[in-house]
Design a protein around this nucleic acid. Structure first.
Length: 600
RNA sequence: GGCCCCGUCGUCUAGCCCGGUCUAGGACACCACCCUUUCACGGUGGGGACAUGGGUUCGAAUCCCAUCGGGGUCACCA
């Protein structure tokens, strides 16, 4: 195979056992950027050899998450417009033979071919111990404070297909239950890593690890090595948690006569408390919230909590037949016996808490922009090392920039903590960088997907969306914040509930000064025609009332705000009233005046 | 516990390879003030770090060693 720059291939190889993890997103991003920068290709491969945990649904979700982030692969599976899973393969002109299958579960014959090669070379052998036997040996070793290493059977000769191995091979061929083990070499192994430098492992560190499970599927280490070779991968970039796997891969490559790809191990992304970022964090978080509640409220138990949530759900929507099944897991969940995400979500809804975002989907659902995520995450373990014209570190950039500036040289070595506050700030900046109309369009699309009730309330008019979007944009750090800032919209015109303290202060205090001003404003607004009802005009009318009353705009605004929003907080009144429309605005003011009595 | 990796503000980092320009720069967060019709946005300013101890050197965040600290990994998961 040629080694011209254009034959460079990176790959992202997720296991389809859930959503795309944020750390996985960074790995994929770096692989993508590195390929783009060097005119190579970025490949996606699905590592679904764990039959029990893998699903096509998950693979599909991961591909969609990547696509949403703007990380599109040149080789491997993609989701077609009609929703089917297609794939890009090496084209004939590339000189590389087509891969055929990018899902490992479909490549078993290929692994078996290489496996047989290893056996015949005396470098792999069937082993017949049961899982239980091995477990017992391992436990004994741990109890004796020894590192467990599988002892190679004395009859196995390294590098020789002897009679004993042949006999084992026949038993395996005959269908006897077995695993395949690699005959590890007794030599020092050096991993050349482009981030970490040479990492050395002493002879004897590696034992004869399993390379094919009893179910016939290859173990990760073996599948990776075979696939990276046969698929044409030249650069393996992955998280540092894989570093200690690499000597196994190198040994396997040598035994199979494969070349060793370039390795670059990226620093880990961890929680602020140094723990591993895992979807289990959601369970931990929800469990803690529930336990805190139970500790505070003595009448609460796992059982009463379950019952409360169940009746709550029944009230909310009757057509949710699977909910009780999930709730049945609740007591065990609280006892720490399972980390079911759905239970965590149910608890979060009940206690009105937000679970930590761990997967790309979580961020998407909570109103993060893909460009903010990729920008932020690219700074975790990498840095362009450039300054802006005013001398500050350059840290705001887009995918295009990454594709033209990314390099392994500037990948760091120390793990980075995932600082949600900084991500939030990046997201707010990304939102504010959007032109109003663009923001309006994207915000609306997001609302229609994740806040459909709200989207319905806003309606179909693009003008109304734009008006609202303008009011909301500077106070939205996430798209969901935009909905919160629009809470006034959902308030019924005839509502009679008002924030008591705010009403007291802004309406009733000083001999009902606010209420009097409100009456004046009401009459002024009433004189405006429906067609003239625009933000600037409404704003200037309120301003005038303030001037004439000699109070300035403050007291007037606050009085109107209480009437309109029921609270002392809302977007600027011009926009707020414009979005509401004259009819609704006046109805609210009237309802408020009625509620607190006329000024006489 | 064995093996492996790492160690600059609370956090992400620039600087480290090619010692002096570093009284260590930026960003997020925090605090104060300004702007302001509320909430936000924005602006200005502030506190805040080279883990520790030894070397090497005229001089060390930068080179070497040790200690301490953190993390990863030790599956018929990937």
């Amino acid at each position: 195979m040629s080694s011209s720059p254009s034959s460079l291939v990176t790959r992202f190889a997720p296991s389809p056992t859930g959503h795309l993890h944020i750390g996985g997103a960074r790995s994929a991003l770096f692989c993508w950027a590195f390929a783009r920068k060097n005119g190579g290709r970025f490949m996606l491969r699905i590592e679904d050899t764990d039959a029990a945990r893998s699903s096509l649904e998950s693979a599909r979700g991961i591909i969609e998450d990547l696509h949403w982030l703007g990380i599109v692969n040149d080789l491997g599976p993609f989701i077609a417009a009609d929703g089917s899973v297609g794939q890009h393969d090496w084209e004939a002109s590339s000189g590389h033979p087509p891969v055929g299958e990018y899902f490992q579960a479909k490549r078993v014959p290929i692994y078996n071919k290489y496996l047989e090669q290893l056996v015949k070379a005396g470098r792999a052998y069937p082993a017949f111990e049961s899982n239980e036997e091995i477990d017992a040996q391992r436990k004994a070793a741990v109890a004796a404070k020894q590192t467990y290493r599988y002892p190679r059977p004395t009859e196995i000769e390294f590098g020789k297909f002897n009679a004993a191995l042949e006999a084992r091979w026949k038993r395996a061929q005959a269908g006897e239950r077995h695993v395949m083990r690699f005959a590890a070499p007794h030599e020092e192994i050096v991993v050349h890593d482009e981030v970490l430098g040479d990492v050395k492992y002493a002879p004897g560190e590696m034992d004869d690890f399993v390379i094919r499970k009893a179910d016939g599927f290859p173990i990760y280490h073996f599948a990776v090595v075979v696939d990276d070779e046969t698929m044409g991968v030249t650069h393996v970039m992955r998280a540092q948690e894989h570093l200690n796997n690499t000597p196994r891969h190198v040994a396997l490559q040598k035994a199979l006569g494969f070349r060793t790809p370039n390795y670059a191990h990226m620093p880990l992304i961890v929680n602020m408390d140094n723990s591993k970022m895992s979807k289990r964090d959601k369970a931990k978080f929800a469990r803690k919230a529930a336990k805190d509640a139970i500790a505070k409220d003595k009448s609460l138990t796992a059982e009463t909590l379950r019952a409360a949530i169940e009746s709550e759900q029944r009230k909310a929507n009757s057509e949710k037949p699977e909910a009780p099944a999930i709730l049945a897991l609740l007591p065990a969940f609280l006892a720490g016996e399972n980390d079911n995400v759905q239970v965590a979500e149910v608890l979060a809804a009940h206690f009105r808490i937000a679970l930590p975002e761990i997967e790309v989907w979580d961020f998407r659902q909570n109103g993060y922009l893909p460009e903010a995520i990729t920008n932020f995450v690219s700074l975790l373990g990498w840095n362009p090392g450039l300054k802006t014209p005013d001398g500050k570190d350059l840290e705001k950039f887009d995918m295009q920039f990454l594709a033209s500036h990314f390099g392994i040289e500037r990948i760091g070595k120390q793990s980075s903590k995932f600082d949600r506050a900084k991500l939030l700030s990046f997201n707010a900046d990304a939102i504010n960088a959007l032109p109003d109309d663009n923001f309006a369009t994207r915000w609306r699309a997001w609302c229609e997907e994740f806040e459909s009730e709200f989207a319905k309330a806003v309606g179909a008019s693009p003008e109304r969306w734009l008006l609202l979007a303008r009011a909301v944009k500077p106070r939205a750090k996430t798209l969901r914040d935009g909905v919160k800032a629009s809470a006034f919209l959902l308030r019924p015109d005839a509502a009679t509930d008002f924030d008591a303290a705010a009403a007291e202060k802004n309406l009733l205090a000083s001999d009902r000064a606010g209420l009097k001003l409100l009456g004046t404003v009401r009459d002024r607004l009433d004189s405006v025609g429906e067609a003239e009802w625009k933000a600037e005009l409404v704003h200037s009318l309120i301003e005038q009332v303030g001037q004439q009353a000699g109070t300035g705009m403050g007291p007037v605004s606050q009085a109107v705000r209480i009437a309109i929003a029921g609270a002392a907080v809302s977007p600027p009144l011009g926009e707020t009233l414009a979005v509401l429309g004259k009819r609704s605005a006046l109805a609210r003011i009237d309802a408020c005046i009625r509620r607190f009595g006329s000024t006489g």
